[in-house]
Design a protein around this nucleic acid. Structure first.
Length: 84
DNA sequence: ATAATGACGTGAT
DNA sequence: AATCACGCCATTA
């Protein structure tokens, strides 16, 4: 069972409209903890959920994060998420 | 419980 | 514009 923060993050990221991108800082803010951008990434990395389109999650500059750190496996998860 | 780490953010150099 | 440093919060060891 994960902390409430991770659950919020999962819900928020999973609620990102298709084509939209949300920054870690924004997510953290919606999660109830502004400035916890790092924590958000930490939650995903540690407890990543296949239903969470992390590729829609970007940095404050709009630059893509290290979401593909997993490699092909991660890419497959992204494709699956985009299929829906 | 404490220390260290990290898929970040902003400011300073 | 690029790089360095510090701060923020949550998770892991």
């Amino acid at each position: 069972m994960q902390s409430a923060f991770s659950k919020k993050v999962r819900a928020i990221v999973g609620a990102i409209p298709k084509g939209e991108t949300l920054s870690y800082g924004e997510i953290a803010r919606r999660a109830g903890s502004a400035g916890a951008a790092r924590a958000v990434g930490r939650v995903m990395a540690a407890n990543f959920d296949p239903a969470i389109p992390c590729h829609r999650v970007v940095r404050a500059d709009g630059a893509p994060g290290d979401y593909n750190r997993g490699g092909a496996e991660r890419k497959r998860a992204i494709l699956r998420a985009e299929q829906t």
